[in-house]
Simulated scan of single mutants.
Amino acid sequence: MVVMTKSDTLSRLAFRPMQMADVDAIMAIEPTIFPYPWSRGNFTDSLNSGYSCWVTEHDGKIMGYAVLMMVLDEAHILNISIAKPYQGQGFGRDLLMHMIDIARQRNALNMFLEVRPSNQSAIGLYESIGFNEMAIRRNYYPAANGREDAVLMGLAL
């Protein structure tokens, strides 16, 4: 794990819109985080569809990314990820707060996301920000033993 303090990174942590040129770096991170990662096509389709796609960088290196889809006054986080070496240091919270700010700028009233029930660290983060469990989506995610449910979470903006 790469340990950085907030004071070390605040001056160098940057958010910027994702570009097609970033997909190679993202594809190097995605399979190290998820057992069933997004494909290159998922990211390129998101960019081509005009979704709000962002990366966070430290010293010019992508350390995280997020994809936000807007539908009317609802924001839906489709993917939010921090590279393993940077997890557990608050960068996921920073990226999520940035995405919440983007959704508010676009006049969203609510934000939604799905998360695996087995991803307790992510659920803890979402709950600490104010997301609440709204429903269970049965057999939503692929899993080693077939399918895994998803917890649908929502946040009033």
Rank of each mutant, 00 (worst) to 15 (best):
M99C: 06
Q87E: 00
I33E: 13
I102W: 00
P31I: 11
G50C: 12
G90P: 00
S81G: 02
N42W: 14
A28I: 05
N48R: 10
H98D: 07
S81R: 00
L109K: 08
G60D: 08
N107I: 01
Y36N: 12
D45S: 15
L78I: 04
T56D: 14
R104D: 02
L96P: 08
L78C: 07
Q89F: 13
F112Y: 09
D101F: 07
Q105F: 03
F34Y: 14
A83P: 03
G41T: 14
F34I: 04
G50Q: 03
M69G: 09
A25Q: 08
Y36R: 09
D94E: 06
F91L: 13
Q87I: 00
I29M: 06
V71I: 03
M27D: 02
G88L: 03
I102Q: 05
E114R: 10
Q87H: 01
R93M: 05
M97P: 00
Y65Q: 02
A25Y: 09
P37C: 13
S52R: 07
S49V: 09
M27E: 03
T44W: 02
N42V: 09
M69A: 14
E114M: 06
E57R: 10
W38A: 14
I102T: 05
M111H: 05
I77C: 12
V71W: 07
G50K: 13
R40Y: 15
F43N: 01
D101Y: 10
D101R: 04
M70S: 13
L95F: 10
M70V: 14
M63A: 15
P85V: 15
C53N: 05
K61V: 07
L72W: 11
I100L: 09
D101W: 08
I102V: 10
T44A: 01
I29Q: 05
E30C: 03
F43V: 01
I100Y: 10
N110L: 08
E74D: 09
F34V: 04
A66T: 04
V71H: 02
F43E: 00
M97G: 03
N110C: 08
D45I: 01
P37M: 13
H58W: 14
G92W: 05
A83L: 01
G88M: 03
M70K: 15
N107F: 04
F112D: 07
